Computed example of a mutant assay.
Amino acid sequence: MRTRAAVVYGLNQRFEVKEVELADPADTEVLVHLVASGVCHSDYHHITGDQIARLPMIFGHEGAGVVERVGSKVTHVKPGDHVVMSYLPSCGTCRWCTAGQTNLCDLGAHTVTGPQLDGTYRFRDDDGVELGQFCLVSTFSEWTVVPGQSVVKVQPHHRLERACLVACGVTTGVGTAIYRGGVRPGEDVMVFGVGGIGMNIVQGARIAGARRIIACDVEDWKLDKAKGFGATHTVNPKERDPVEYAMELTWGVGVDRAYEAIASPETIGQAVRALRKGGTAAVVGLTRHDQPDIPVNPSDFVLWQKTLTGSLNGGCNPRNDIPAMLAMWESGLLDLDGLVTREYRLEQINEAYEDLLAGRNIRGVIRYEWADGGVPA
């Protein structure tokens, strides 16, 4: 079949929106008609070479849509079901899955290699060039074929143009605060960078019962926005040293938990220094695969017993946590609508990334169609 998709052919090249050929799903795969896809910075890191991926590739990993067709061995979804993508498929049988760490499933090694799990490709352009699928899902395509392990069935009343955010940004942010960072009621929290991930860490910390939530960002409008998601204090590092601010606010003790959603050496170092004795800092932002050393004194770990950890998809189990977080949205605990700064047509994808890189968006969303069958203006 034919589908519109956004293809990147080489490092630092722009998206080319074009019609391409999409093969039928294999026995264990699912054909999905996308309704919406979030615009995430992680894709861009692979376009610039900060992270390694096989190009050419159709990017996009934060999507939601409707199942059109399933392979003969797929039993957990059927045509017509509403689904949210899981950009980290889980086999259910490897060491990590059986230990409850499905976000670390061995299948994750396939997410940037290009082909599907069986080593073959589903997308080709009109010149016969095989096009890789980012995270095996390629949600920057109106139609896509994905592994059965990569779709999570959700309730049909959830609006998919917002539910798509729970595929990555929301699970990563909220999960980091609750699971990987382990916020406890009454604790003090600091979040470095309140974009699409950091804003969800803020609301995750609020849900977990944090006392103070300090949002740190260079964009004042994002800091103002963070207050609506639960931030009790804000600091712009252009105006004041964020570590000094955290120490002053906590009477020299430091925060219990610090979350770094930028992944620069400077801000990782700041997150560690802002901690109290025995505190935990979690790095969430994606950066260069050859990132230089971070400015952290080993004595912080030995003498102050601080912990520096990482967070992949917030430590979430997508099959459980995607429906759970959508239920939290339904109950009013989570705000998804407030995350979306602007919606775009697929043809505007380069503009969407320009806005993201310029700091103009919390989250942009590519809309493939409206409820009435139209598309964004």
Results as ranks from 00 to 15, higher is better:
243 V>K: 01
132 G>F: 12
135 C>F: 14
311 S>F: 12
104 L>I: 09
70 V>R: 00
90 S>Q: 05
62 E>N: 01
360 R>C: 03
340 V>M: 08
90 S>G: 12
227 K>W: 03
134 F>Y: 09
90 S>A: 13
138 S>T: 09
332 G>S: 10
141 S>E: 04
322 I>F: 02
340 V>H: 10
284 V>T: 06
13 Q>S: 14
274 A>W: 12
234 T>V: 15
197 I>A: 03
288 R>W: 10
148 G>Q: 02
39 V>S: 02
266 E>M: 09
150 S>Q: 11
21 E>I: 12
14 R>Y: 05
155 Q>C: 08
194 V>T: 12
263 A>R: 00
103 N>W: 05
3 T>K: 01
90 S>N: 07
29 E>V: 08
21 E>L: 13
101 Q>G: 12
125 D>C: 14
147 P>S: 09
161 E>T: 10
71 G>W: 01
246 A>Q: 00
298 P>W: 01
345 R>F: 03
83 V>D: 08
117 L>P: 06
293 D>M: 08
292 P>E: 06
76 H>F: 08
368 Y>K: 14
245 Y>T: 02
207 I>Q: 05
19 E>S: 12
102 T>V: 12
325 M>Q: 03
254 G>Q: 04
12 N>L: 06
125 D>G: 07
172 T>D: 10
266 E>F: 03
253 V>K: 08
216 C>W: 12
57 M>S: 13
376 P>G: 12
264 S>V: 06
160 L>V: 08
84 V>T: 07
54 R>Y: 11
115 P>H: 03
312 L>G: 15
302 V>R: 11
37 S>Y: 03
377 A>G: 13
280 T>S: 11
157 H>I: 07
14 R>S: 15
196 G>V: 04
64 A>I: 10
268 I>F: 11
111 T>R: 01
16 E>R: 11
129 V>Q: 11
24 D>I: 04
294 I>L: 04
236 N>L: 13
304 W>F: 15
79 P>L: 12
262 I>R: 10
245 Y>P: 00
166 V>E: 00
90 S>C: 03
26 A>C: 11
261 A>Y: 06
149 Q>W: 07
14 R>Q: 11
157 H>T: 09
367 R>N: 14
300 D>Q: 14
226 A>F: 07
328 M>H: 05
312 L>N: 15
35 V>C: 02
68 E>F: 00
364 G>W: 02
323 P>A: 08
174 V>S: 00
235 V>L: 13
344 Y>W: 15
223 L>G: 09
31 L>K: 05
57 M>L: 14
14 R>D: 15
64 A>T: 04
287 T>C: 01
341 T>Q: 06
272 V>S: 14
374 G>W: 09
